[in-house]
Amino acid sequence: MSRLVLLLQAGGIASAALRFACSTISIQRLDPIVEPGRIPSGHVHQIVGGNAFNATMEGDIGERGTCTTCAYTEDFSNYWTAVMYFRHENGSYKRVPQYPNAQLGSDGSDAPDIKGGMTVYYTSKDFNSNGNQFIRAFPPGFRMTVGSPTANTVDYARGHPGLRYTCLQTVLTRGSETTEFPTKPCPAGIMAIHHFPACWDGKNLDSPNHQDHMYTTTKGGFAEAGACPTSHPVRVAQVAYETMWDTSVFKDMWPKNGKQPFVWSFEGNGYGTHADYLFGWKGDSLQRALNSTCMFHRCGSPGVQGVLKTQTAEEMNKCAVRNLVVEQTDGWLVELPGQKMVPMRFRG
Score class of each variant (00 low, 15 high):
3 R>G: 11
7 L>M: 04
11 G>Y: 03
17 A>F: 11
17 A>E: 13
24 T>I: 09
27 I>V: 15
32 P>R: 00
36 P>D: 12
46 Q>G: 04
46 Q>N: 06
52 A>P: 01
60 D>N: 13
64 R>C: 05
64 R>F: 07
76 F>T: 15
83 V>I: 09
89 E>V: 09
94 K>P: 00
95 R>A: 06
99 Y>C: 06
99 Y>A: 06
100 P>A: 01
102 A>F: 05
104 L>T: 10
105 G>E: 05
105 G>M: 04
109 S>Q: 10
123 T>V: 12
124 S>D: 11
126 D>L: 03
129 S>P: 02
146 V>D: 07
148 S>T: 06
150 T>G: 07
154 V>Y: 00
156 Y>P: 03
159 G>K: 08
177 E>M: 05
180 E>I: 00
186 C>K: 02
194 H>D: 15
194 H>P: 15
204 N>E: 11
205 L>H: 01
206 D>N: 01
209 N>E: 09
210 H>C: 00
216 T>E: 04
216 T>V: 00
219 K>I: 11
220 G>D: 04
223 A>V: 08
226 G>W: 00
228 C>D: 13
229 P>W: 14
230 T>Q: 14
230 T>N: 12
230 T>E: 15
235 R>T: 14
239 V>L: 15
242 E>K: 01
247 T>F: 00
264 W>R: 06
267 E>I: 00
269 N>F: 00
271 Y>R: 14
281 W>N: 04
282 K>A: 08
284 D>S: 08
285 S>E: 12
288 R>F: 03
290 L>V: 10
290 L>D: 14
294 C>R: 00
296 F>G: 01
300 G>E: 05
303 G>Y: 06
305 Q>P: 08
317 N>C: 02
317 N>S: 04
319 C>G: 02
321 V>H: 09
322 R>Y: 12
322 R>H: 14
324 L>D: 10
328 Q>S: 10
334 V>T: 14
338 G>I: 04
341 M>R: 12
342 V>R: 14
348 G>A: 10
348 G>K: 14
